[in-house]
């Protein structure tokens, strides 16, 4: 039942309709100058990147088990059952651990604001209850970005690869990257050639910190027993000496 987005870079013509549609979601300004900035930032939550004749799109990958949500000390970021990773601005205290932890360098910060917040794509979570498409995929004239059920989109992607094996690189980006993401990407060339990080782990990142965190109760119990024991032994000498002195 999880919503997902399939971006087929072979269909993308770089018209940037997705960028302008996204700016309406966040009521952000959008003009030629911003269109030319080929990177995401607090005022541009998705971007088209040009690699020669090819295009690729960057947006929040909406990981299945997101690092940002696991590291957030106040649970401002949350993976919803419906798929999107959403941000509850009222909780955020601005530690920016989410930005440090994101394997795709997605969350942006309002560096020039006096009271800044994190900005990132939320998969048009306002439309999730009605199962509506994201604004970017709604406006995409070529069908390069489409919204749907994750399992169905994976099936669709596999079908496209199988039907035109010469036109596609034989992999879907987002199936195993950091344990799976809700944004899936198809490409004609290996993904690293069009700006996708292929060096990310193949398993979910939160497990790495959990491996350490899960030992906290053990440290508390063992620490108390050890400290108490050492105290008992180290102070016994004194007690004995005291009593001997009394006799």
């Amino acid at each position: 039942m999880a919503r997902a987005l399939l971006y087929d870079s072979t269909l993308c013509v770089g018209c940037r309709q997705c960028e302008s549609a996204c700016s309406t979601r966040w009521k952000l300004p959008y003009d030629d100058k911003i269109a030319a900035e080929e990177k995401t930032s607090a005022h541009k939550l998705t971007t088209i990147r040009t690699y020669g004749e090819r295009f690729s799109r960057k947006l929040c990958m909406h990981c299945q088990d997101p690092a940002c949500a696991s590291v957030c000390p106040v649970a401002a970021l949350r993976k919803t059952a419906a798929g999107p990773v959403v941000y509850e601005a009222d909780r955020c205290m601005g530690c920016r651990y989410c930005m440090a932890a994101c394997p795709f360098q997605v969350p942006s910060y309002e560096w020039n604001a006096r009271l800044p917040l994190v900005r990132k794509c939320d998969f048009c979570s306002d439309r999730v209850p009605t199962n509506g498409p994201t604004r970017c995929s709604e406006e995409c004239p070529t069908g390069a970005s489409i919204t749907g059920e994750r399992s169905q989109l994976i099936a669709e992607a596999k079908k496209r690869i199988a039907e035109k094996p010469t036109e596609y690189y034989q992999k879907i980006y987002g199936i195993e990257e950091v344990g799976g993401t809700s944004v899936l990407v198809l490409s004609a060339v290996p993904f690293e050639q069009i700006g996708y990080n292929t060096k990310v782990e193949k398993s979910a990142l939160p497990q790495y910190t959990w491996n350490a965190l899960q030992h906290i109760p053990d440290v508390v119990v063992m620490g108390t027993v050890l400290m108490g024991g050492v105290y008992w032994i180290s102070h016994r000498k004194e007690q004995v000496a005291k009593e001997e002195g009394r006799q």
């Binding site: 957030c72 955020c92 205290m93 601005g94 651990y97 800044p116 910190t209 959990w210 350490a212 906290i216």
Partner: peptide, 24 residues
């Protein structure tokens, strides 16, 4: 100084995320 919104420094006391190292 480092927190973007320092006046919310108390948030982890009531807004829990036990999976977070920073929370701990």
């Amino acid at each position: 100084f480092d927190l973007g919104r320092p006046y919310r420094i108390w948030h982890p006391i009531i807004m829990w995320n036990p999976r977070s190292v920073m929370f701990e």
